[in-house]
Design a protein around this nucleic acid. Structure first.
Length: 460
RNA sequence: CGGGGCGUAGCGCAGUCUGGUAGCGCGUCUGUUUUGGGUACAGAAGGUCGUGAGUUCGAAUCUCGCCGCCCCGACCA
């Protein structure tokens, strides 16, 4: 048992000499935007083919951190996690009419029996099929299920790394409600949970009225992260960027509370180019009018009975009627978020991970590898962090200080501890913020306590 | 899909026009050196020049086909 614990402790610590971190000094020629360049340079991803990427250990850790946050916030909102297959039969899609409607963006496959299959671009059909097979009564409503699963959309032109990949990792959720009113509450509930989700990732994502595309429906908001490299042109009232969800407590079952958050965050003008109305925009005081670019990181839809009508997803309404359920769907582009966060948080030296999503909590730089005092202090530090449930990345390579600092800056851990003979002589190490560059000299005990304190608000 | 460009060592590139048996920088390996912001020196390994065919005594280089990748436009988490 003691031995198992020892192994577990080592698992939470990583020595850079034993890690797989293929950082690049030079920028790969194919990368045009900063997030793509930094993801390649920092060894987060490697392109497998156009718009399809392998997630290397460091990138995979970030992806998993984002996934954890999405799960936690979905579960907090009362939604049920599940998982559906990536390869689906064409039959259900014929039933909804989307097999033909979806067009070339859907990757179509034949199995050995020559049956038409497809790689799922979204899952309204399959979830509706599951629903109709098991739910027949209003008593089982409301119901919201979601998954985080790989999707494939055969984009005409994939670009910008994971920001517009063909294969991408997406949270997709589906709500089933008896009435339109209930379904709109589900819509509002998702808006609230998404606001929380993005803020935990260190992002400001603004809900904007949008167009629905092939999912269908009338009510839809997109969440956009402002960034110069965004693909969408956006128009908004600058007051909206002052809004913060913060750590307020919300009763997700309360229609009134969710409605009031929706009103707070959507009452000011904020639209993408698809729904932009210049006349309404012009009525905003000029000094508050903003035209910018944004990255779409999520979207919520209410589409009523579009799929339940087409696929016969009916429930007994308690009054002797069999009625189609009201539905909506909601997506968060988890893999795209990795790029979006980097677009929003970097400098000329590399990535700057927000504390909520960083792959390792702290980097330990040993300036004199092989020096007994330095090595010992670093070992003590990472054991102390592991004991507190924090994950350090220990740079134990026999590189010069400059090379170690450059690597740490590139991969963007928010906090770095520098351990060198000079400081240790006085019993201290240095704690440096990646974001501000500010450093503090602290004792070994104090630095562990300080880092634990920093991360306390970010633990689930 | 329309328009443009590129494919030569792990990465970034030169060589192609004007055919003659492949080179530079970074990285990697060995040794020495250095040690608080990508050290310096010496040595070494590493390439079916995307692919197939053709022209030629000879093809990275010329011709044709194919494949892959990137950029600009219309669509999408």
């Amino acid at each position: 048992m003691a031995r198992a614990n020892e192994v577990a402790r080592k698992m939470t610590t990583m020595r850079l000499s034993r890690y797989f971190l293929p950082v690049l000094k030079e920028t790969p020629a194919e990368a045009q935007i900063v997030s793509h360049r930094l993801m390649l340079r920092a060894g987060l991803i490697k392109q497998a083919s156009a718009g399809i990427y392998s997630w290397l250990p460091l990138g995979y850790k970030v992806l998993k951190r984002l996934e954890d946050i999405v799960h936690q916030e979905q579960i907090r909102a009362g939604h049920l996690p599940m998982l559906m297959p990536t390869i689906q039969s064409a039959d259900l899609w014929r039933e909804s009419g989307r097999y033909d409607a979806y067009g070339a963006e859907m990757l179509r496959i034949k199995d050995r029996h020559d049956r038409d299959m497809l790689f799922t671009p979204t899952a309204e059909e399959l979830i509706t099929d599951i629903f109709r097979g098991h739910v027949t009564s209003y008593k089982d409503l409301p119901l919201t299920m979601y998954q985080i699963q790989w999707k494939f959309r055969d984009e005409i032109r994939p670009r910008f790394g994971v920001m517009r990949g063909r294969e991408f990792y997406m949270k997709d959720g589906y709500n089933f409600d008896l009435t339109k009113e209930d379904a709109l509450h589900a819509y509002n509930r998702h808006l609230v949970s998404y606001l929380r989700t993005y803020e935990r990732m260190g992002l400001q994502a603004i809900p904007m009225r949008a167009a629905s595309g092939p999912i269908g429906g009338d009510d839809t908001h997109e969440f956009l992260v402002l960034a110069e490299t965004g693909e969408s042109e956006v128009f908004y009232d600058s007051e909206i960027t002052d809004l913060r969800f913060g750590d307020r407590e919300i009763d997700y079952a309360s229609h009134a509370q969710c409605q009031s958050v929706l009103e707070e965050f959507t009452s000011r003008y904020a639209r993408t180019d698809e729904t932009h109305d210049p006349d309404v925009f012009a009525k905003i005081p000029v000094e508050r009018q903003r035209v910018a670019r944004g990255i779409e990181v999520g979207q919520i839809f209410y589409f009523g009975t579009k799929y339940s009508d087409a696929m016969g997803a009916l429930v007994d309404d308690g009054q002797g009627n069999r009625v189609p359920v009201h539905m909506g769907s909601h997506g968060i582009g988890v893999s795209r978020l990795v790029g979006a966060i980097i677009e929003a948080s970097h400098d000329e030296n590399g990535i700057i991970w927000p504390e909520g999503v960083t792959p390792f909590h702290v980097g330990i730089v040993n300036l004199k590898q092989g020096d007994a005092a330095c090595d010992g202090a670093c070992e003590d530090l990472y054991k102390a962090f592991a004991a507190k449930g924090l994950e350090p990345l220990y740079d134990d390579r026999t590189e010069r200080a400059g090379a170690k600092f450059a690597t740490m800056d590139l991969i963007g851990l928010p906090w770095r501890i520098t351990v060198g003979p000079r400081g240790l002589a006085g019993g201290t190490v240095e704690l440096t913020s990646r974001k501000t560059g500010e450093s503090r000299e602290l004792s070994l005990e104090a630095v562990v306590a300080r880092v634990a304190e920093i991360y306390a608000p970010h633990r689930g």
